[in-house]
Every structure is written in C-alpha cells, then in structure tokens.
C-alpha cells in the first residue's frame, strides 16, 4: 500500500497543477458569465473523468499519439489562459474536493481489480494525460473551428485529430462508455495447508464469476501447475504443492485470456461450448466464434518415489 501511495503522490501534485490551469478557463468564463454555469461545468468535467478512467488499451494508444503531438500547443494555450484568468479562491477549493473523491475512486479500482493490476500501473500516467487531453478538447471545442475558419492556412495534424475524436464522441457516446467494460473480480484466496498442500478457498466462487464449469478451470489449473488436486467438501480446491496467491493469480489471468475473454473484441461475455471434441468460444457481444486450445498436461516427469510407482503398477 505504501508503494502505491508513493506512486500516487507525484501525480497528485502534477494533476493539481495542470488541472488548476485547466479549470481556470472555466472559472474565467464563469466569472464573465453567470456563476450557475460553473457548477454544471465542474460536474460535467468530473463525469468526463469517470467515463475516461477505465479506458481500454487500444483507446489509450490511439489517444497517446494525440497527447504527444499536443504538448506544444497546450503550453501556448495555458499562457493565454493564465493571462486571462482571475481565479476565485472558493472555486479552487471545490475543485480540490472533487479531485480527492476521484483519487479515492481510483484506489478502490486498483484494489478490486487484480486482472489488470500490472498494466494499469504502467498506464496510469497515460490515463492522467488522457484525462487532461479530453478536458482540453472539451474546452477547446468551441474555439477549435475558429482557429482555421477565418485563416487560409493548412490544418495541423493535431487539430484534425482532435476534431475527429470530438465528432466520434458526439456521434456515438456509447462507444466510449461501452468499451470501458472492465473485468473486475475478487482475488483468489490461497492458503497453505501444512507444508505440502495449498487450498484455493474461493475456487467455486471464481468459477461462478467467470461463468465456467469448475471442472474446466480445475483441469486447466492442474495442467498448468503440473500437479494433482481435487475439490473437497467445502467446495475449496486442494492443490498438491506450495503455491502463492500471486502465482495462482498469474495462471488465472492466463485462463481468462484464453478461455473467457473473446479473442476478437475482448469482451468477457462469452460462452464456452464443446463441439465434436473441441471447445469453442462464442462471444455474446460481437458474435464471433473461435476454437480455443485444448487443455493438455503434456509430459510429466517422475517426481515421486520410483519404488512407490513400481509397487503400484505391479
């Protein structure tokens, strides 16, 4: 947790700095206009944040490009805004409050979602930028066309890119909202029993959240870990060997990637069917259907006592 906190800190300050300038525009506008507008503007921006937060990977990449190109322009903008801005103190405080809330939400997300933990940490910064960018776009929307409407110059790449994304967002807001569907699930509870066995206590629960047969997941786990095991009376899985939660998580992640999420659209809304000895993954979202690898344990080396095996066979 301490690490996470440390990770959050620098961003927090950075965010605040940037945000203030971002919000100054709003504040300035509100100052000249009416005060009631400001509140709505704020809430709108916040909503925007919530929407953007769990953005999928492809989206990030695409938007990252945008942010790279944008930097120069942004700076120029801010200067102008700073000149204009006469910022009221009370509003700033409000903004801060909002930020705190947001951060809390973020943390909870991180805690719950173990499936994307790793990626997310790396992505965090990008997301921050993304949020900033979106907001920028929002603010710029009104000004943007006027930048080239009057003049005879060529459009810059950044302007066109921003324009296209704005249009996309306007035309189908579901795309942004629908794609963000995140796969949140509880982490596996793994406890050692004695020295040689490991218990996976919420095994059936996880099977239920994944909508998969416990037998299928059991087969996969045992084949991947190269051991034997079984489900006991309390519906917990007992695996032979020492395993830690992190390791089981890793294997589960691989299982989800191969047998739960759709290979085409990555939606977790899928059905696994058996058809002529092969397993097929049918996606409920995009309708694609593809075969998945069969579970094979492959070569198993002899790890026990050879004498015991010989005695059993004879």
């Amino acid at each position: 947790m301490t690490e996470e906190d440390a990770m959050f800190d620098p961003k927090l300050t950075k965010k605040k700095k940037k945000k203030k300038t971002g919000f100054d525009l709003d504040a300035a506008i509100a100052d000249s206009g009416n005060v009631g507008m400001d509140a709505s503007e704020n809430s709108k921006a916040e909503k925007e944040n919530m929407e953007v937060d769990p953005a999928p990977i492809e989206d990030d990449e695409a938007l990252d490009l945008e942010s790279f190109g944008k930097k120069k322009k942004k700076k120029k903008k801010f200067n102008l805004e700073e000149l204009e801005a006469a910022l009221p103190e009370t509003k700033k405080e409000e903004n801060n409050d909002n930020q705190v809330e947001e951060n809390e939400v973020d943390e909870i997300d991180l805690n719950l979602d173990f499936t994307k933990e790793k990626k997310k940490k790396k992505k965090k910064k990008d997301l921050e930028e993304l949020i900033e960018d979106r907001k920028e776009n929002e603010n710029n929307e009104n000004e943007e066309p006027s930048q080239w409407v009057g003049s005879d110059r060529d459009y810059t790449y950044d302007e066109l890119l921003a324009r296209v994304f704005n249009i996309m967002k306007e035309k189908n807001p579901d795309m942004v909202a629908g794609k963000k569907q995140k796969f949140v699930m509880r982490p596996p509870q793994v406890v050692r029993i004695g020295t040689k066995k490991t218990s996976f206590s919420n095994f059936t629960e996880i099977c239920k959240t994944l909508h998969r047969q416990p037998k299928h997941l059991l087969d996969f786990l045992l084949a991947e870990l190269g051991t034997s095991g079984s489900v006991d009376g309390n519906s917990q899985l007992i695996i032979k060997g020492r395993f830690q939660q992190k390791q089981i998580e890793n294997v589960l992640r691989r299982y989800i990637k191969e047998y739960v999420t759709c290979h085409t659209c990555r939606s977790p809304d899928t059905i696994l069917q058996k058809d002529t000895r092969l397993f097929f993954l049918q996606c409920e979202t995009c309708g694609s259907r593809c075969s998945v690898a069969s579970i094979k344990s492959g070569f198993q080396a002899v790890t026990g006592k050879r004498a015991a095996i010989r005695a059993k066979n004879a």
């Binding site: 051991t227 060997g241 020492r242 492959g298 070569f299 198993q300 080396a301 790890t303």
Partner: peptide
C-alpha cells in the same frame, strides 16, 4: 515448444522442455 515447471519435494523444481 512447451516449457513446464514441476514442483518436487521442498523448494526444488524441475523444468521440462517438450
């Protein structure tokens, strides 16, 4: 090429390349 790991007694392990 399947690279697997198997646990043995204690913290010993075995790697198989199939």
């Amino acid at each position: 090429v399947h690279i697997r790991i198997q646990q043995r007694n204690g913290r010993k392990t075995l790697t198989t390349v199939q």
